[in-house]
Structure formats: structure tokens, C-alpha cells
Write a protein that binds this DNA or RNA. Structure first.
Lengths: 216, 216
DNA sequence: AGCCTCATGTTGACGCTGTCCACATTGCAC
DNA sequence: GTGCAATGTGGACAGCGTCAACATGAGGCT
């Protein structure tokens, strides 16, 4: 939560603070956590950092650039959550099952983070009009998809579309769930629903012995 | 575009305007169209409606409530776009093919609208903290899904999950595409990609003679 | 050492915003 | 016609992002 001490101490601030940029970002991240992305404010951040508002402009061109930094931090947290889910996933025997597990763990992590830290999640993808957007978190999903392709769960020609679909599905679910479109946010029910949704996505990769759904 | 004349005329405004609420909403919708959701402003809307800023407060409790109205309008436009795509869809012979076409038309309409009117699309789902959110546009998707279920394309137990997945996929794709995650916004390429993504979603409903993708 | 320069932080101001208050005007019901 | 409730106006306040001018201190140069 707090990496920097010397935030509430009244030991007579040093002349030049020394870590202002870092402090502003971390305080702004806190603001976002508490009140959502639009709670980020240069003046409030400076206030909490114990500094005049305009000092921020020595470190950020713009409010949008500060928001960009915050978004990057939030995305890093998202990535950590996904990685944690990856680390905790059950080990499978076959390559296909392993790949499928990897993909679904990534999706679970993504959605879980969105449900547990909605403000951070929203901040991760907030509009900040500074095209700083190396997707970072997406790379985990990308890797999982490559694993699936390697295991033959995804056809060659479908690879690009499958990637887009996976991103879309996971991101869309998170967004809609946060907005309450899948019923009032009962964490448990949403988790269950998300699992079913993720399971739907890779029917061809179902664990052996269970037939692929089919009609007609 | 413009339903109300008497906006630029200088014929000496009537004493009480008479249609202020409507005028404010439509002007705000225009603001959103031009500059995105966050361009909506009570003062600017009032200005364009030729009225003092505070007059707006006789018709909207709050900026957020105005934004809510705008969002509802935007969603109506979205629904129209989806309906248009539905009306223009090719007619199929079999019930299954028809249902699948219906579902994919709905998805196409949704994504097409997002790509063609990004600002309106964003406005349709913008945060406005007034839980006015009858999803309206979603009902078309819901109907299409029921049709699919009736045609046996969706198993009984999977219905809820399939609905969530369809919503998520379509919405997520629109969001990510607008953010430029699928490459710089070349309308054409994005359309093609979205078609592939949608096709991926209902593999069991593929047009006859084309085998369901499968491995292992 | 001493100076000078540049980075950093401060003060004050401007225009914009949402919103509240008190007041003016008007349409409508009686 | 009178009065009331609805509607529009004007002025004010606090908060915001941002700019320009100024102050302060750290570090390199001689």
C-alpha cells in the first residue's frame, strides 16, 4: 500500500522534497483507488504530497500525463494479479489441458482484479489521451494464446481473431460486470458466471472425455 | 441531426423558451458527438440553448442527470443502428442459420456503430452515476440469443453464460477497437476482424458443409 | 572557497466549471 | 384580474487546470 514513509511526518519538510514525482504518482494512485479515475486531481495530489499545486508541473506536462502514469501503475497491478492467478493454477498433464488452464487463469486473474479493485481497474484503462499505451498486461494473455496455438487448440488462420476475441471477451465481461449488467455485484455469482463464460470460449479444448457441444 | 429549428435565429427569444429540457438534451448530445462524453457541460449546453446556465437546474437535478439523459439518447441511436443491420441482414432458409444470422447482425450493428460514431458510443456507456440504466439496446441481443436457443444453437444450461459471453465479446471488442488495441483504426480492417471474431463465437452454428473446427 | 546556473518549489492570477441563493418574469387556474 | 407555481436570470462561491513571475537551494566551475 505505502512504499514511501515521510508523508505524514511533520519533521519540517526538506527544502526540495527530492522525490516529488514518485510521491505525486503514488498519491494519485491512491486518489484513483479511493474515488475512481476522475478523482485524480493535480491540486489534490500536490496537497497530499505537501507541496504547492504548480510544483507538479515541473514533473508532468499535464494532468493527462499524470493520469497516464497512474494508469500505467494500475496496469502493473493488474498484471500482478494475473500473474498470481497464473502461479496458483493447477498443473495439468497434457499440453492441451495445460494451455487451456493457462489461458483461463489469465482470464480469471483479469476479471478477478476488476471485481476486487474496480477503481484501479477503471484507472488502468481510463482515457488519458497520452498514447503511452504499451498494453503490458495483455502480454500475459498473448503468451497464453500462443501456448494454445502451440497445443493445437487454435487453428493457424484463426490466431489473430482468437486473440482479439479473447481480449474482447475478458475485457468486456469485466466492464459489464462492474457496471452491474450481470445483476447486482454479488462477487461470488459473478465469479461463477465468469468461469462459465471462460469455459465457453474454448470448447474445442475441453478436458478429454467431455464431448464438444454440438447440434444439428 | 437537428430536430429543432429556432436555434440560431435571432427573432427575439420567447419569454420562456418552452422546450428547454428537450433543447438542452439535444444540444448536449451534440456536444458529446463533437467532443466525447466529457465535453458535456451544463454551462455550454445552456449557452448553446441561449439561456442562462442555471435555467438548466429547473430541468435536471444535476450534471449527472443531464449526462444520463444524453446517454439514453446515445443508446437509442445505438439501438437504431443495430436494428438497421437487422433489417438489412440476408434471409436464411434454416431456422438455425436464421438465428445465427440474427445474432451476428446484432453484433455487427453494435460494433459498426461504435466504429462509426465513437463519441456517441462512448457517451452511451459513460459513467453518469445515475442508475437510469435500462439497457434498451441489449434487448435486441437478448432476442437474438433466444432465437438461437430456440434453434438449438445454445444448450439449455449454457443460456445465461452464453448471453453474458455474447454481450462481453461484442462490447469488449468495441471498446478495445476504439482504444486502438487492434492496430490503428482502419475501419475496413477492424470490420473484417470483427466479422471473424463474431464467427468464432458460434462455431456450432456454422453454415452447413463447413466443418466445425476441431483438433485432437 | 565562492559564484553561477539550473532545476525545483511558491505565489498569485485567469478563466473555466458545477452549484447555491435570491430575485424576476411569465403561464395558468381560479 | 389575482395569485401561485413554474420557469428563467444574476450574482456569488469554491474548486479545478494552467500560466507567468518569482524564490530557493544543489551542484559544477574556477
Amino acid at each position: 500500500m505505502s512504499e514511501r514513509p515521510d508523508e505524514s511526518d511533520e519533521v519540517a519538510r526538506p527544502y526540495h522534497h527530492g522525490q516529488l514525482r514518485e510521491a505525486l504518482i503514488s498519491v494519485s494512485l491512491q486518489l484513483a483507488e479511493e474515488g475512481g479515475p476522475e478523482a485524480i486531481s493535480i491540486r489534490e495530489a500536490a496537497r497530499r504530497a505537501g507541496v504547492a499545486a504548480n510544483a507538479a508541473y515541473r514533473h508532468f506536462e499535464d494532468l493527462n500525463h499524470l493520469r497516464g502514469e497512474v494508469a500505467a501503475r494500475a496496469r502493473a497491478h493488474l498484471r500482478d494479479a494475473m500473474q498470481a492467478e497464473l502461479d496458483a493454477r493447477p498443473r495439468r498433464r497434457t499440453e492441451a489441458a495445460r494451455a487451456k488452464e493457462q489461458l483461463s487463469a489469465v482470464g480469471r486473474g483479469y476479471i478477478r482484479f476488476a471485481l476486487q479493485s474496480p477503481n484501479l481497474f477503471r484507472s488502468a484503462w481510463m482515457e488519458c489521451s497520452v498514447p503511452d499505451f504499451e498494453p503490458s498486461a495483455w502480454s500475459l494473455l498473448q503468451e497464453a494464446l500462443q501456448e494454445c496455438a502451440r497445443a493445437g487448440l487454435i487453428l493457424q488462420g484463426e490466431q489473430e481473431a482468437a486473440a482479439a476475441a479473447a481480449w474482447s471477451l475478458v475485457h468486456g465481461f469485466a466492464e459489464l460486470a462492474l457496471r452491474g449488467f450481470f445483476g447486482p455485484a454479488e462477487e461470488q455469482a459473478l465469479r461463477a458466471l465468469s468461469d462459465k463464460v471462460l469455459a465457453l470460449f474454448l470448447p474445442a479444448g475441453r478436458t478429454p472425455s467431455q464431448p464438444v457441444r454440438r447440434r444439428r
